[in-house]
Write a protein that binds this DNA or RNA. Structure first.
Lengths: 186, 186
DNA sequence: CGAGTGATTGACTTAGATCAATGACCGTGG
DNA sequence: CCACGGTCATTGATCTAAGTCAATCACTCG
């Protein structure tokens, strides 16, 4: 069940009856809570591939607004069907719970990373955790700007940090791939 | 099933067979991944009440180490029992999935907050989202130092920010309670 | 009554944000 | 086929908010 959204268009509003689980196909949707004073607080920014408002599955009404930031399309997995499936099919249940558990783990790791003040250590934290099987190489997911956003750094700060790490011989860069090369890695 | 840990003691190691889900009763336990070079990267710091390594339920072995930071005690919910329960009892399943979904939501919100650079706006983001039913008052969970850590600020920065918000008439403080008082809230 | 911790404020420093400019690359429309 | 607008990658200069160090006061606990 697909739905197209124009930029600025609302997918759902706080108080509305929950329809189900959304997945963003393209564009980005943000979840906002608007307080009495009209100030908006962002709860989540969901981009292509990401899933939206899982908790609404277990609630009768939404507790925030969802608004398309850009033109976007979303896929709806209807609540009734999902919940019925959870009742019926233990395999599905297991997969669903596993998916949520992995999200929790990933989010906790990313949050933990934000507790690291230094840009250098933040980058190294990411690299250490996302190193491939060889424990040494990381393929960057998207652009460096996206990487900077993931790390919570300005892109300039990231460029400089990477440059310094390269100069210090800690890493080597080849296109979108970073290789850890400190003496400690031998 | 309770287990006591001396400070520095290991609860489990990467590669070991997964026993189940742990909940921290007292003290704090940290999850670490240690890379080839011996550098440690923290994945999670779990304090009293928090739950540990949910994703391990769906994996045969642990992918990180768990070490007690302080003296700690943990409760083990054995994997086999939990998984069997998930197969058998749809009500339990639903509750479990709902718990995970709420964690995901909460973590996403906290991560989103860390994208806010300004200490002032970070505090206001927290207050807006955690305001009680009246939309105006927030009871702080623990000490201000803990609050500062939650926000990713030094405690000094938090004190100053709160002082400034108070001076600006944006908030009022009464012990552990903060009340939003901007003109916008009337 | 000290020892330990939280709350608070002052002084100083710095890492990273911000503003700005440049070159490379890419798709696209004439 | 090429010029143009857009975005990414990169580097320089500058500024400032927040981190760090330090000191004080209030409390609590054994």
């Amino acid at each position: 069940m697909e739905r197209k959204l124009a930029p600025g268009h609302t997918l759902f509003r706080a108080g509305a009856k929950t329809a189900g689980l959304y997945q963003v196909i393209s564009g980005t949707v943000r979840l906002l809570r608007t307080d009495r004073s009209g100030r908006e607080a962002v709860l989540q920014v969901a981009s292509a591939g990401e899933t939206l408002a899982e908790a609404s599955l277990f609630s009768a009404t939404y507790h925030c607004d969802a608004v398309a930031t850009t033109a976007a399309s979303v896929h709806l997995y209807p609540k009734a069907i999902l919940l019925a499936e959870l009742q019926r099919d233990p395999t599905f249940t297991r997969a669903f719970a596993a998916m949520l558990a992995h999200q929790v783990m990933s989010l906790r790791t990313r949050l933990e990373r934000r507790n690291i003040r230094s840009a250098r250590d933040r980058v190294l934290h990411f690299l250490a955790i996302n190193a491939g099987v060889d424990g040494r190489t990381v393929a960057l997911p998207g652009t460096l700007k996206e990487f900077a956003a993931e790390l919570g750094l300005s892109h300039e700060a990231l460029y400089r940090t990477l440059a310094r790490l390269t100069a210090d011989g800690e890493i080597e860069r080849t296109g979108g791939v970073i290789k850890l090369t400190g003496r400690r890695y031998d």
